[in-house]
Amino acid sequence: MAKLTINEDACKGCSLCIQVCPKHILELNREKLNAKGYHPIGIINMDECIGCASCARMCPDVVFTVER
């Protein structure tokens, strides 16, 4: 059981987190534009998150907060 919180307005949609997620549960949210004009990152399936924080360590804009 883990919880991922995303600061959507800080995200630039670079997708580096997507490729390091071992559970493949991150995807750009194409339905949404943030204040900077990017599609922010979104979580497809929160229940599968293991709280490894790989996304948070890879993110250049420190958008993730991870709880476990």
Binding site: A10, D61, V66
Partner: peptide, 19 residues
């Protein structure tokens, strides 16, 4: 909390290019 933004960084968003 296993990961959060460090207090040593301010709240100013980075101006760097995506990625």
């Amino acid at each position: 909390v296993v990961f959060e933004k460090t207090k040593m960084l301010t709240d100013v968003p980075f101006h760097y290019c995506p990625g």
